[in-house]
């Protein structure tokens, strides 16, 4: 029997090290967020005081609501755009410039985020000065844009694995193109769309760089608020917020995996 890579010497050691590097800091973070003492590095017992403190903080509440709201709106917009893009790139056979279109759609994954951030800062500054509008519109636009590839990838994967004959069969059975989309393509695509929406949501929720450059005064999201806090003084409150964010992300990822799992 041929030996696979898992039988190479040191395989177990290396993989354990990698997993430790990935998860040990998170475990420590979660544990210390339940620390009852004031000191960041000194364990004094289990307590929920940092969670209640964070919850009572109006700034935290404000940033949380803004973050969730922004992520939800950006997820919906980017998923709608990504769905159309995925249909356009998979439902018409190969065409000239297809690879170019893929690269264009996935651009936010490849261009350094800081470049996009600076570009948006300059671009939006012009509007802010000339229109006088300072609202959340800029953040919504920016987040919707960079979330598109995250929504696009699972939707496209789902479309590519879908049997095209099903759509032909629907047309054969008197379904108009719109009825075919609504009755056959969309229901089969739905798990991909939900998965894409969730990835977009998490991506928006997590963003710092673009948000910092684009936001106006008083538009802190949870990550930028935490960044601001840490600059002044590292507080265990930040641990508690991180733990809550982690919890939310884990829930979303579990749902994502359940949706994208291949059915037997």
């Amino acid at each position: 029997m041929a030996k696979d890579v898992t039988h190479l010497p040191g395989f177990t050691t290396i993989s354990m090290t990698v997993f430790a590097a990935l998860y040990l800091p998170i475990v420590i973070l979660v544990v210390y967020s339940f620390n009852s003492g004031e000191d960041l590095a000194h364990w004094e017992g289990i307590g929920l005081q940092w969670f209640t403190k964070a919850w009572a903080n109006d700034q935290v509440k404000d940033a949380t609501i803004r973050s969730l709201w922004l992520a939800a709106v950006a997820a919906v917009i980017s998923t709608a755009v990504a769905t159309m893009a995925a249909l356009g790139t998979t439902r018409r056979g190969r065409f000239k410039g297809q690879t170019f279109i893929y690269v264009m759609i996935n651009q936010p994954l490849m261009v350094p985020e800081i470049v996009t951030a600076v570009a948006l800062l300059i671009f939006f500054a012009w509007f802010k000065v000339n229109l006088g509008y300072q609202g959340m519109g800029y953040l919504v636009l920016a987040h919707s844009a960079f979330c598109i590839p995250f929504a696009y990838l699972p939707i496209r994967a789902r479309l590519e694995s879908m049997d095209l004959t099903l759509e032909t069969a629907a047309a054969d059975l008197y379904a108009t193109p719109w009825a075919t989309f609504r009755r056959v393509t969309l229901p089969l695509l739905l798990p991909g769309i939900l998965a894409g929406m969730m990835l977009a949501f998490v991506t928006s929720l997590d963003d710092v760089v673009i948000t910092v450059f684009v936001k106006s005064a008083g538009q802190d999201t949870l990550p930028t608020y935490m960044l601001g806090q840490i600059r002044r003084q590292v507080s265990t409150e930040v641990y508690a917020i991180s733990t809550m964010l982690l919890g939310l992300t884990v829930v979303l990822l579990v749902v994502f995996m359940a949706l994208t799992r291949k059915k037997d």
Partner: peptide
Amino acid sequence: LPPNKRPVNTVFQSYALFPH
């Protein structure tokens, strides 16, 4: 005529049954 306007139906080699 597009397929949805023809009073003709097809049994596909792969059956193409709607899985949902």
